Lab assay of single mutants.
Amino acid sequence: SSGGSSILDRAVIEHNLLSASKLYNNITFEELGALLEIPAAKAEKIASQMITEGRMNGFIDQIDGIVHFETR
């Protein structure tokens, strides 16, 4: 797709992000992006959206560029 990722790509990214949230206590956007094979800024945006929508527990430290995952 030309304008970003398809629905399937997005679903795969979100699935992998949720998997990462179970493996890590926290991770930088750079590391997360590398893990998900997407730019760091996109990793931040998707993580932020999932947390806001209540689909993933955690919070974002924008100063240090880190996602902190919280286990249920």
Rank of each mutant, 00 (worst) to 15 (best):
F29Q: 00
G65W: 03
S6V: 13
H15D: 09
L35Q: 04
S1D: 13
E30W: 09
T28C: 04
A47C: 10
N16P: 02
E70T: 08
S21K: 03
H68M: 06
S2P: 13
Q62D: 09
D9C: 07
G33A: 10
E53Y: 03
E37G: 15
V67P: 02
V12H: 09
G65H: 09
H68T: 05
A40I: 06
L8Q: 11
A20Y: 15
T52D: 12
A34K: 14
M56I: 15
L18I: 09
L36Q: 01
S19K: 15
Y24G: 03
G3S: 12
I60W: 02
E14G: 02
Y24R: 06
G3E: 12
D61W: 06
S48E: 09
A11I: 09
N57P: 09
F59D: 04
E14Q: 04
I60H: 01
N57F: 14
G33D: 00
I27D: 00
E70D: 11
N57H: 12
N16L: 15
S6D: 14
L17Y: 01
R72A: 11
G58K: 01
T71F: 08
K42F: 15
H15Q: 14
M50W: 03
S2Q: 12
D9G: 06
N26Y: 15
E53C: 07
I60Y: 02
P39H: 06
A20T: 07
K22W: 08
S6R: 08
E37P: 01
P39M: 04
L18N: 04
E44G: 14
Q62G: 08
A11S: 09
F29V: 06
E14S: 03
Q49F: 05
T71Q: 13
E44V: 15
E14D: 04
R10S: 08
N57Y: 12
H68V: 09
S48L: 12
G58S: 02
A20E: 02
S19F: 09
D61G: 04
G4N: 12
L18F: 06
V67Q: 01
I38Q: 02
A43C: 06
G3W: 05
F69H: 01
F59W: 15
D61M: 08
A34F: 10
I38H: 01
E30C: 06
G65V: 03
I63H: 09
Q49C: 07
S2R: 06
E31C: 10
H15N: 14
I46H: 04
R55Q: 05
G4Y: 03
F69L: 04
Y24L: 07
N26C: 15
Y24H: 05
G54N: 06
R72H: 11
G58V: 02
S6C: 13
K22C: 09
E30L: 09
H15W: 09
I46E: 01
L32K: 00
I27N: 00
T28I: 02
I38E: 01
K42Y: 15
S6M: 10
E31H: 08
L17Q: 02
Y24T: 04
E30K: 09
V67W: 02
I13E: 04
N57Q: 11
S5E: 13
F29L: 11
I27R: 04
T52Y: 10
I51M: 06
I46C: 04
A41Y: 11
S5Q: 13
N16M: 15
S6Y: 05
D64Y: 15
A41S: 13
N26E: 09
E37I: 05
Q49L: 08
G65K: 10
S21H: 04
